[in-house]
Structures are given as structure tokens and as C-alpha cells.
Simulated assay, not measured.
Amino acid sequence: MTKIEHVVYTGKTHTTGGRDGAARSSDGRLDIKLSPPGSTGSGTNPEQLFAAGWSACFIGAMGKAASLLQVKLPADVAVDAEVDLGSTDNAYFLQARLNVSLPGIPADVAQALVEKAHQTCPYSKMTRGNIDVAINVV
């Protein structure tokens, strides 16, 4: 396991009530209700939050990769993240897909950007070897 030498940022939240609760960040910028996946509750769920965080981070990693490969990312770059919560043998697991849209970028260059981003994105590093992940250029 790699140890961090310099902390760049620490996200702090206070969560109560689990999947039927609420979460608030220490700076107040995040203040949300939580609801279980598939319920009629008005809140979001951890899988949606993880999908949003990972896709945002992945776009940042693609920006770094584009800079290294001397490619300009299109203004309408997008990542549609899908995070599945499922079970096997009465235990819960996650799996995920990142569907990456890079309009106007040749397929081979897009694939190279995605592969480089997947190697450097902290969320991708966190999931590597821990959950089933598919990265698709769409």
C-alpha cells in the first residue's frame, strides 16, 4: 500500500442514519438526504455519490493524460458512471462501468487517454483489484 507523503485535501463529512439518513460536509457545501437505492425516498445514495466523484476525478485524470500526450480534450468530454450494488452468497459487492465520451478524438487516441487516466485517477487506483470495473470509450 502506498502511503501519502503530503495531504493535498481532506474531505470531511458527518453522516447520520445510514442509508435512510443525511450527510453534511464540514464546510456546509454538501448537505444531502440519503435514501436506499431503488426506494421512494427523496435522497441520493452512496452508489450515486461514488459514481459522481469517480467520474469527476476521471475527467481530471484525462486532462492530465491529454496534456502529457499533447492532445486537447473536447469541451464536451463526459463520463457516464454506473455503479452497481449487488450480492453474491449473501454478501454485498460493487461493480462499475465508466462510459467515456470524447467527441472528435480518434478512437486510438481516446483509448490511450482513457487507459492513462485509469492508471493515474485516485478512484481508479482505489478500485483496482477490488471490484469489477469496465472502462468503455463510447
Rank of each mutant, 00 (worst) to 15 (best):
I32T: 10
T120Q: 04
T44K: 06
L94D: 11
I105M: 02
Y92F: 14
L98F: 04
V100A: 00
S101R: 09
V133F: 08
Q119D: 08
L68S: 15
A52I: 12
T120A: 10
M62F: 03
L34Q: 01
C121T: 02
A117I: 09
T120E: 07
L69R: 12
G11M: 10
Q70K: 08
T127Q: 12
N45L: 04
A134K: 15
K12L: 13
L85Q: 05
M62Q: 05
G18V: 10
D132M: 15
H14K: 12
S55P: 04
A110C: 02
Y123P: 04
I135V: 15
I131T: 11
E5K: 12
K12D: 14
I4V: 14
V77K: 05
G17N: 05
P122D: 13
D31Q: 10
L94N: 08
A117P: 03
P103D: 03
N136V: 13
V77F: 03
Y123V: 01
T40Q: 14
H6D: 11
K64L: 12
S55L: 08
D27E: 09
L98K: 01
S25A: 03
S124K: 06
V7T: 13
S42P: 14
Y9L: 10
A81S: 11
Q119M: 04
V138T: 15
T15R: 07
K12R: 13
A81V: 00
E47K: 12
D76I: 05
G11A: 11
N130G: 05
R97L: 09
A96Q: 06
H6S: 10
E115I: 10
A51E: 05
A96T: 01
V77C: 07
K33D: 15
N45I: 06
V77W: 04
A134T: 11
P106E: 05
V114D: 00
I135R: 07
C121F: 03
S39E: 03
L69S: 09
H6Y: 09
P46M: 02
I131P: 02
L49F: 05
R128C: 08
N136F: 11
G53W: 02
I59N: 04
L113A: 11
L49P: 06
R29I: 11
K72F: 02
R97I: 08
S124M: 04
D132T: 14
T40W: 06
K3S: 15
L49E: 00
L98H: 07
L98D: 00
A61Y: 00
S42D: 12
F58V: 01
I135A: 13
T44N: 09
P74A: 08
A75E: 09
G38F: 11
I59Q: 09
G60R: 02
T120W: 07
A117Y: 06
S39I: 11
A112L: 02
A134L: 10
Q48C: 06
D132K: 15
G63D: 02
N130M: 06
E115W: 06
A134V: 12
A66Y: 00
K12N: 13
T10R: 12
A65W: 04
